[in-house]
Amino acid sequence: MTQTNFLKLVMPFKDKIYRLSKRLLVSNEEAEDATQEVLLKLWKNNTSIEKYNNVEAFSMTMTKNLCLDRLKSKQAQNLKIVHSNYQDHNVSLHKQIENNDSIRWVSKIMEGLPEQQKIIVQLRDIEEYDFEEIAKMLDMNETAVRVALSRARKTIREQLTNKHHYGIR
C-alpha cells in the first residue's frame, strides 16, 4: 500500500482516533501523540491492513488499548498529565465565556467517569457507532455496553442537573 492510499484509508477516522485519545488522556498534546502513534502502528502493519475487514474498528480498539496503557504507565510513574489547552477562537468574548463555561462543566463531569464509561459514551454519543460495533471494539457483550452507557448517561445528567441548579440558586 502506498502512502497516499494509506492516508486516504485513514483520513475518515483519524479525527475519531484523536477524539477518543483526548477523551481518555485529556490533554491535547498527549492525544496528538497517541493519535500519531496509532497511525504509525497502522502504517507499519500496512501489508496486513487489508486483511482486516474493518480497519476503523480495529484502530479504535488499538487507540483504546494504547491510551489505557499510557494512563497506567503515567500512574505508575506518579506523573500527572498536564493539560493546558489554550484556545483562541474569534468568537465574541462574552459568547465564548458562556459557551466554554457550560461545555467545561460537561467535560469536567465526563472526566470524572470511569475509563470504561468514558470510552463507551465517546463511541456512542459522539462518534455514533451502533452497539454491535462498540461491543466488538471493546470485546464486551452488547448488554454490558448498554448497561455501562445507561449508567454513564444517568451520572452525567444527575451531576449536570445539580450543577445547573447550583449555578442558578
Partner: peptide
C-alpha cells in the same frame, strides 16, 4: 430539560474537534 440541552451542546461541540497535526509517516 435544560440539563439535556447542555449535554447535547457539548456532544455537538466535541464532535467538531479535529486532528489538525500533519500525519507524518516514515
Amino acid at each position: 430539560l435544560e440539563s439535556y440541552k447542555l449535554l447535547f451542546q457539548y456532544v455537538s461541540h466535541s464532535r467538531q474537534e479535529k486532528f489538525t497535526k500533519a500525519v507524518t509517516l516514515p
